[in-house]
Amino acid sequence: MLAVSSFCFIAAPAAEADNLLIWSPAKVSPNTYQATVGFRLPMTWETSAGADLGLGATRAGALLPDAERATLWGKLADENVTPASRARQEVAVRVDTLRGSGTLLLSRSRNFIFSENLDMELSRALSVGYAKADTRPASLDVSQAIKLIYPWTGTALSARGAVTDTRGDFSTTLAISQNILPNLDLSASLTDPISSGKTGDVRLRYQVRW
């Protein structure tokens, strides 16, 4: 059974606040630039808002429409961490001012130690999307997932169920991952395992950090 969680927001000043300005520019290609600008507010909840901007051009100076970005965003998040668990709830909104689309996301997750040999993760989310170009007024996605982690063996099992759009399309995904080496992981997933259109995926990932 899928459930939608309720969220509460407490606007209380925090004692101290550092790094209130968000500024992250990037050069994507020789003639394409992107930047994230915004600010954080010193409140009990992690509160931030800003914009993702982008602009690109050809070598001749003509603008590239696909490289243009002007997305407004905002986020409220609360995280509670204890030695045995971590809980987080978040409200996020994004509005693409160039393409006339937007999304509202409500999510909640909890990680905790279930037993000496087992950790557990629970998550649920509700997403409402709007696109001006679509004939449908809005899209609605509701999902819920559970993940079992065996820390001593590096094995993780997960299951996810989701209802997509107002038509009530339901999908499920089962997955397993195994840590083989410190930087090497093997994972496999199966989507809609009891339907005729089931699909599978196997991946081997090697991660290098420097």
Rank of each mutant, 00 (worst) to 15 (best):
Y206T: 00
N117G: 12
M43H: 13
D66M: 07
L174R: 00
F170H: 13
Y150N: 09
A11T: 07
E46I: 05
F112A: 01
G100L: 06
F9W: 13
Y150S: 09
L2T: 05
W152Y: 12
R110Q: 08
T172V: 11
G100V: 06
A60Y: 14
A77T: 03
R86F: 00
R110E: 07
K27H: 04
E46Q: 14
L181G: 00
I180F: 10
A51K: 05
P30T: 04
W23M: 15
S195W: 01
K147T: 13
V202S: 11
D201K: 13
D141G: 09
S158H: 05
G168H: 12
E79R: 15
D66W: 00
A49G: 08
I176H: 05
T47W: 10
A17S: 13
R94P: 03
P30R: 12
A162E: 15
E116T: 11
Y130G: 08
N80D: 13
A11I: 02
P65W: 00
D78A: 06
T173H: 00
T103S: 14
T172Q: 15
S171R: 15
S143H: 05
R136W: 01
R203N: 13
A26D: 15
L98V: 06
L122Y: 07
T199R: 15
V81C: 02
G56Y: 04
E16S: 10
K75G: 01
I10Y: 09
S115Q: 04
K132W: 02
R59K: 14
F7I: 08
Q178L: 08
S107N: 10
E79M: 08
A84S: 10
V91G: 09
R136D: 09
R69A: 15
L41V: 03
A175G: 11
S196W: 00
A70P: 03
Q34F: 06
A51C: 08
I176W: 10
S85F: 10
G154L: 10
R86Q: 09
R86H: 04
G154F: 02
M43T: 13
T97K: 03
A162K: 05
P137C: 07
A26N: 15
R124V: 00
L2F: 15
T153P: 01
G168N: 07
A188T: 01
G200T: 07
Q89W: 10
L140E: 08
P42Q: 04
A51Q: 08
D201H: 01
L105Q: 04
P65C: 09
W45G: 00
